[in-house]
Design a protein around this nucleic acid. Structure first.
Lengths: 185, 185
DNA sequence: CTTGTCTATGCAACGAGTTGCATAGCAAGA
DNA sequence: TCTTGCTATGCAACTCGTTGCATAGACAAG
């Protein structure tokens, strides 16, 4: 399970509340690990019971109070332990691939709009990633050399960019294949 | 949920038992959708109750008897329905990306072996995919034109190949970054 | 002053997925 | 004969993840 560890990383980068974490999971961390606020609140509770994180009530003005979590020594140790143990390489899961293989039992051409929709979604993500790269890593490049944390964040982002580019190219291949099949007998 | 639908596709391609399905999920279908035999047996039971599939007891010689499942009319209709409704584009989930971002709170160099291990696993998968492509799609290309089902299987396989190539290139990028960070103060 | 939106936290129920274990037929080799 | 290994099916218990719902403070627009 990596949700706990993803939360530890995020809280080490900057302490925050469950709500703030759920926002972060919509952007940077969420590029490679998604989580809803339900999951986050539940896991935060367990992590607190396990002594991995501390809570602090933070009164706020103009908005409801929040609970700010920060990583404890044992939490940091738990992350270290996990970093040193191997994880299995992920297997991909693509609904769309199932659909493409299933299309032969229905109408392949009916999939074209769906594939185009996916292509658009991936193109949007790519644009978003590229904007983030421009903002966080390219702009200050010449004058302020990046520290190790930024280098590592950047290489992860480059992975996201490569993934989206590859996916878009593949979806173009899929579309070409579907169009080629259309005028068949 | 796509497991039901992946099973429908696989059973439409060729009827089979739960055991056979679990073997298929280790190879072709499993390239983009994994499932253990536990999941498969449980889902097969539900699908049978829902009338999506039929069972037939098949006595065998030299091995235990099996139950062969095949798709019914309602099952085929359920697949059709699913093919026509949109699915959300997947979000990636990468333990490794979490580890890379977390490495800055530990020792980045300690990740090198882990990343190399992943690189090897992806290189193995790529070799496997390429062998499958050679066997199923390239060999008979000139004389026997592919039918629609084969074309669609091929484009899905090309997706797997593109994914592995992209991942290997990215892991090389990650390794270069980790090596670059090593001689830092 | 009501409605909508954003922040902020949480419960309950369900479905999906994993892990460990159990059983049993049959075959091949030590 | 005993062990190992492959085929074949399944239960039980657990964790992970999703969905729908509920509450509540603050603010802004109509």
């Amino acid at each position: 399970m990596a949700l706990e560890h993803a939360i530890l990383v995020s809280l080490l980068e900057k302490p925050g509340s469950g709500y703030e974490l759920s926002r972060r999971f919509e952007r940077s961390i969420g590029y490679f690990w998604t989580a809803t606020h339900q999951q986050i609140y539940r896991v935060l509770k367990r992590m607190e019971q396990d002594g991995w994180i501390d809570v602090r009530d933070v009164p706020q003005q103009g908005r409801p109070d929040k609970k700010e979590y920060s990583v404890t020594g044992p939490g940091r140790a738990a992350l270290s332990g996990w970093l040193h143990e191997p994880v299995e390489p992920e297997s991909v899961r693509h609904d769309l691939a199932v659909k493409i293989r299933g299309a032969v039992f229905d109408d392949p051409a009916a999939l074209i709009r769906e594939v185009e929709r996916h292509r658009q979604a991936h193109a949007d993500r790519l644009t978003h990633y590229l904007a983030g790269e421009q903002r966080d890593f390219t702009g200050a490049g010449a004058e302020a050399p990046l520290d190790a944390g930024q280098e590592l964040q950047h290489v992860v982002l480059r992975g996201g960019i490569a993934y989206e580019r590859m996916t878009i190219a593949w979806l173009d291949d899929v579309l070409a294949t579907l169009h080629r099949l259309r005028p068949a007998p």
